[in-house]
């Protein structure tokens, strides 16, 4: 596969490490009342869709960016590649 890195352009997928569902960005609030249940779901319950999936890829043999790659797991078509940091900010994460 070829991943179109937002900063570096098209790169071979062998340069990357895969970590699955990009929902890992949405780490629950540890102070919340239901934190235990929320973290349980966060850590163990992931979607594994046949079709479009937003997933995390790490450019380990490159610039060390974490990317959010929107990929169709049936066809391997990639429709969007974003810097995970930008996605995290847009999901309300800060520090």
């Amino acid at each position: 596969m070829i991943i179109d890195h937002p900063l570096l352009g098209p790169r071979d997928s062998s340069e990357f490490t895969y970590m699955g569902d990009a929902a890992l960005i949405d780490r629950p609030d540890p102070e919340a009342e239901d934190a235990a249940q929320a973290f349980y779901e966060y850590a163990y319950l992931r979607d594994n869709p046949a079709g479009w999936h937003r997933e995390l890829w790490f450019h380990e043999a490159g610039d060390r960016s974490w990317l959010v790659v929107t990929r169709n797991t049936l066809t391997h078509e990639i429709s969007n590649v974003e810097l995970a940091r930008d996605v995290a900010r847009s999901r309300g994460r800060s520090a």
């Binding site: 890992l24 960005i25 790490f58 900010r89």
Partner: peptide
Amino acid sequence: MEFVRQCLVPDM
């Protein structure tokens, strides 16, 4: 560590 830095605390 990079995951935490970029994905969980992007503004640190």
